[in-house]
Design a binder for these strands. Structure first.
Lengths: 155, 155
DNA sequence: CCATTTCCCGAGTTTTTTACTCGACTATTG
DNA sequence: CAATAGTCGAGTAAAAAACTCGGGAAATGG
């Protein structure tokens, strides 16, 4: 799983669609305006999102994009995988990284990390992000069930 | 947490030291030979590892590097952080990514991911990698107590 | 039909990051 | 003193990431 700003932008844009999509399709220009992402770049991202079925498009005036399925069934991992194709952390298939024919010594480590990251991103859905955004528009709380760090830094 | 091949190389090199360090310091040339990493590059990596106290150096003939502390107390995360300085996944402190003064909508998401990755890498020690390498030199099993991801994405 | 809006698409270009090298230097051993 | 090894800062080259461009094609409304 690759972690790039491209993936971040894609998640942000999808969240924007989820947030503003109740009154029909959302145009890329609107997203570009609200999220301060260039239109040309958004087009590129949504091309991939559409091919993965995460959004559906409507052409012509009044057109735009809508979510391809219910936000409850749309995980962050889906979005990241759609725009930033796979690439796993191991990267040692036949490369000189692992010098002999056997797998490199740390192969299992990176494979495990992959699973860990994927599991996390799969556990967060767009619906959760939307809910969180609505309930705390200003004071953004931590996501997930993550407990606040107990023992604050200052007394 | 940044995930680069630099970090991977560093972990591999450290594992080499752990594996061959019983008979005194390990030279970079030896590591370069065994792991097929250029000597000049290793020098750069070990410079940082030494400054973080993860290894100790002995100069002159017969010199080389030894682990800075017991492999049980040396986590993979320590190594990665030493060579690939911090950088967390959020990256939205005052950047236009989050366009207003409030934190961007997905801030909590990335912060959570950070924690997840860090926790994983902190849970794996050099000692575990050594043990695993010794017990299954060929058929590398999965690391950790990692359960297979339940409920695969596709049917 | 025309003009406008909006998505569609492939092929660039630019910038940033990563990976990796070089050359000169210092400490230690025998 | 000569050989071995680590120390250090700067510099370069390659790859990847981020982002742009320009021309299209479908839908809508007049």
């Amino acid at each position: 799983m690759r972690l790039t700003t491209k993936g971040r932008f894609a998640v942000t844009a999808m969240l924007d669609v989820a947030l503003h999509g109740s009154a029909g399709p959302v145009t890329l220009s609107a997203i570009a305006e609200r999220q301060k992402i260039s239109l040309a770049y958004l087009e590129q991202l949504f091309c991939k999102l559409r091919r993965s079925g995460l959004v559906e498009s409507v052409r012509g005036p009044g057109g735009g994009y809508t979510l391809g399925r219910a936000p409850e069934r749309l995980a962050v991992a889906d979005i990241m995988l759609a725009v930033d194709e796979p690439i796993d952390a191991t990267q040692c298939r036949g490369r000189e990284n692992c010098h002999d024919d056997r797998r490199c010594m740390t192969h299992g480590l990176w494979a495990g990390l992959n699973d860990c990251i994927l599991a996390y991103l799969q556990s967060v859905t767009l619906a959760e992000l939307v809910r969180q955004q609505r309930t705390s528009p200003c004071e953004v709380a931590v996501l997930h069930d993550e407990r606040p760090p107990r023992a604050a830094a200052q007394a």
